[in-house]
Amino acid sequence: MSRQAEAVWDPAQYGVYGDERARPFTELVGRLGPIEPRHVVDLGCGSGELTATLAGRWPRAVVRALDSSPEMIAAARAHAIPGRLTFDVADVTAWRPEHPVDLIVSNAVLQWVPEHLDLLPRWIDALTPGGRLAFQVPGNFDAPSHVLLRELCRSPRWRDRLAGTVREDPVLDPAGYLDRLARLGCAVDAWETTYMQVLTGDDPVLEWVKGTALRPVLSALPPGEAEEFLTAYRDRLRDAYPARPYGTVFPFRRVFVIAARHAP
């Protein structure tokens, strides 16, 4: 997570529907194929469970993981392996490697960084020849969950406090990222997937968004006003995502990119 979000992160809330949140990460890493990186960096590691799978996948690799949220890193350190897997508080926008790395992973982070397109050349330069940058970002900013959130933030009741809190269009589509990274001399694999998540429980879409897109809003409001906002948002989400006998369907579009730096 980047400090650009100006949000306080809650590892427990983020972990709600953890299996569903992990699916894009698993797809991204699975697409890397039979590589054997020795130095791996996870930029925006969150609470560390998924980063730990990288250490398990490549037992000879040294994995360094960074996140700007002290709350997330405190939770992540339960997964640390001395000498092999470390977690530190740091802003991904300021990261500079001590030496070239074989793989940079960034999972659901870059949407929080307004200047992330400017980071891509620097991150490619940080790779070894043949090294890879692998990232995924949400592509659902025109979904009802996000449109309704922006509309509520701009409403007369909240606009003086929250207008501009939730960004309109923070990421590119796969073609946009492919073009950017191919122009940097990379071989690029870019694609998208929409998961039809079936969520269970009371107001599950609200519970989902409380772990991510709502964090800047909840961080900006005192508890009483936050509850008022959540009540209004909950009513809108119930109409947009009606409960079915088998659960609530929540389409979940993701954009994936793997860029390999050409060897000289």
Rank of each mutant, 00 (worst) to 15 (best):
G185P: 05
C186E: 05
Y195F: 13
T165E: 05
D169T: 13
G176F: 12
R157D: 14
D239Y: 09
G185I: 03
P242V: 01
G224I: 06
R154D: 15
D189P: 00
R215Y: 06
Y246G: 11
R238Q: 07
Y246V: 14
V171F: 05
A232S: 15
R167N: 04
E227V: 06
A220T: 04
V217Y: 06
E225Y: 08
T231G: 12
Y233A: 00
T231V: 15
R180E: 13
G211P: 00
E225W: 11
K210N: 10
L221N: 02
D189C: 01
D235P: 03
A187P: 01
F229D: 12
Y241E: 08
P242D: 03
P216K: 04
D160I: 03
P216Q: 09
E207P: 01
P156F: 02
D202L: 09
C186V: 03
E207I: 04
Q197L: 15
T165W: 05
L172G: 08
V205Y: 08
A182L: 02
T231R: 15
A182N: 05
E225T: 10
L214V: 01
L230M: 08
V209R: 00
L178E: 15
C186D: 06
Q197E: 13
P156D: 09
E228W: 10
D189E: 11
A240C: 04
A175N: 13
E227D: 13
E228N: 12
P222M: 08
R157S: 11
